[in-house]
């Protein structure tokens, strides 16, 4: 018994260590690259640890950045691009969560004609690649005068991510026992109250998972903002970083530093949400 458990424990530890090495290896490469000089980066054989570590790349990213680095004014827009990414991702997360919870509950618990067809239609849009939609979508957004606007960008993100949210909440709501909801309805609660007071609290791990998924998905968007948010005030950090790739000379250190800073908000969110999931695990079910 104990021996079997320890074999399993070793296996789990090995999987976790392997996953960490696989995940963090390239990120360590980024960390080393961000403090290396350009000649160390292109040296062969590779320079594993920089002989003259420098914070030049990080200084160049400050709004009033000194340090130059050939990237010119793009590097100085980094702060505002981070803010743009943050605002758009938070808005997308809030809107997607509310709309997916409502629709997921409706499809799972409310008996209305056509719900099955509509539900399958919504979830089926998950198989559509963005490229199939981009060109006509551009015309539609232009007609609605939503190109280069914050709501336009958020709406496109929501339309791409909401089907996954609806699907996830549909299956979570299905798993919540019906009894207490029925009892609440008999006691005079409205459907909406039953949803908020009884169903939602039991779906907290699911909500935490979807919050993380939606925020990260919006944070890493590239093609959509490239096409639909070209004005400097709406440029997210993903698009700005591509502008650091020069035609003749790419500033690898600047890209690595910017990428590492851009990692922080989603990483902090994932950390806080994992606590939530863990809290539910110890406090729920039993």
């Amino acid at each position: 018994m104990t021996r079997r458990l320890s074999v399993l424990g070793l296996l789990r530890a090995a999987v976790i260590v392997g996953a960490l090495l696989w995940t963090l290896g390239p990120i360590l490469v980024a960390a080393v690259t961000s403090v290396s000089t350009q000649s160390e980066i292109t040296a062969s054989p590779a320079v594993w640890f920089p002989h003259h570590p420098t914070l030049r790349a990080y200084r160049a990213l400050l709004p009033t950045g000194a340090g130059g680095g050939g990237a010119g004014s793009e590097a100085h827009q980094f702060g505002s691009a981070m803010l743009t990414s943050l605002v758009v991702s938070l808005e997308t997360t809030a809107v997607t969560l509310v709309l997916s919870i409502l629709a997921g509950y409706a499809f799972a618990r409310l008996d209305f004609r056509g719900r099955k067809v509509v539900f399958v239609a919504v979830v089926s849009t998950l198989v559509l690649p963005v490229f199939a939609l981009v060109v006509p979508l551009f015309r539609i957004m232009a007609t609605l005068q939503l190109i280069n606007t914050n709501p336009g960008l958020v709406l496109i993100y929501v339309s791409a991510i909401a089907p996954l949210g609806v699907w996830m909440f549909y299956s979570y709501v299905k798993d919540v026992p019906v009894g207490p909801q029925e009892a609440a309805l008999v006691d005079g609660c409205t459907r909406f109250q039953a949803l908020v007071k009884i169903v939602l609290p039991q779906m907290r791990p699911g909500i935490a998972a979807l919050t993380t998924i939606v925020f990260l998905a919006s944070w890493s968007q590239f093609l959509i903002p490239l096409l639909f948010a070209q004005s400097p005030s709406l440029k997210p950090v993903t698009v700005l970083i591509t502008e650091f790739v020069g035609k003749y000379n790419t500033d690898y250190a600047l890209i690595a530093a910017a990428g590492l800073i851009a990692l922080l908000p989603p990483a902090l969110l994932a950390l806080s949400q994992s606590r939530q999931i863990r809290g539910m695990l110890s406090g729920g079910d039993l």
Binding site: T23, L24, P26, I27, A30, L216, W219, S220, F222, V237, T238, I241, T242, V245, I255, A256, A258, G259, A262, L263, P265, P266, A267, A270
Partner: peptide, 9 residues
């Protein structure tokens, strides 16, 4: 982390 890292990077 890898998911949050912009693709270009």
């Amino acid at each position: 982390l890898p998911w949050a890292l912009p693709r270009v990077v």
